[in-house]
């Protein structure tokens, strides 16, 4: 695993920014979902995007998995693709979580809805701290019950150079809910983030 040229200080700073973004997201989510949301401090890792399929195919090998992708783009070359991975045994909890009535909506629609909420609240928090603002493409489900997750990840991550892995574990009072989030980002965005991190470190 490579640190892609991040210094120790830069990496600590990024971790801190992500912690704060996660805190903002959990606060918003708690209010939205009307339940206490406990978010563990996410562990992050920067890896080459080509490592992603191997890392995740193991974890989701013996279960049905779903993968939802959503593009994001902001100013000054900050852009990428956010991927949220779920184990499908989680899926039936999502309706409860979102407060949907049975029959309101299909399983796929619920997955794209919850993914969009998780991705945009988290990334909005992140953007706010690096003084950027983001637009989003509509979430798309890339794989659900059928098909090999690692193949899908392969074809998705192929277009990107780097991946920021963020392990997110949401614990809600009445539900526990786990998923993985991966941010796939190109070289230019990584350089941009480094510049921003250095600026924050200087100000600090």
């Amino acid at each position: 695993m490579t640190n892609l040229g991040f210094t120790v200080e830069q990496k600590d700073c990024l971790q801190e920014i992500i912690n704060v973004a996660m805190g903002l997201a959990s606060d918003k989510l708690a209010r939205f979902l009307n339940t206490f949301v406990h978010l563990q401090v996410p562990s992050i890792a920067l890896v080459g995007a080509n490592h992603i399929p191997a890392e995740f195919s193991g974890r989701y090998a013996d279960t049905e998995a779903a993968l939802v992708s959503q593009g994001f783009f902001g100013d000054e070359g900050v852009r990428g693709e956010a991927i949220v991975l779920y184990k499908m045994d989680n899926a039936h909890r999502i309706a409860e979580l979102l407060g949907y009535e049975p029959g309101d909506s299909s399983e796929i629609e619920m997955l794209t809805d919850i993914s969009s909420v998780l991705t945009t609240t988290f990334l909005n928090g992140l953007a706010q701290q690096i003084e950027n603002s983001l637009s989003y493409s509509a979430p798309r489900i890339l794989s659900s019950r059928h098909g090999n997750l690692s193949d899908v990840l392969q074809s998705t991550s192929f277009h990107w150079e780097h991946a920021l892995k963020v392990d997110i574990s949401y614990q809600l009072v009445d539900h526990s809910f786990n998923c993985d989030m991966i941010l796939l980002i190109p070289d230019v965005a990584v350089s941009r983030i480094k510049v921003i991190l250095d600026r924050i470190l200087e100000e600090f």
């Binding site: 939205f32 909506s105 629609e109 969009s116 945009t120 909005n124 509509a138």
Partner: peptide
Amino acid sequence: EAWLKRKLMSVLDLQSPAFSSWEQR
């Protein structure tokens, strides 16, 4: 109504966009 209100509420509460695709609806 119920579904759309929930969506619109998320836009107001979270100040983040929500989406609906013809493929699901």
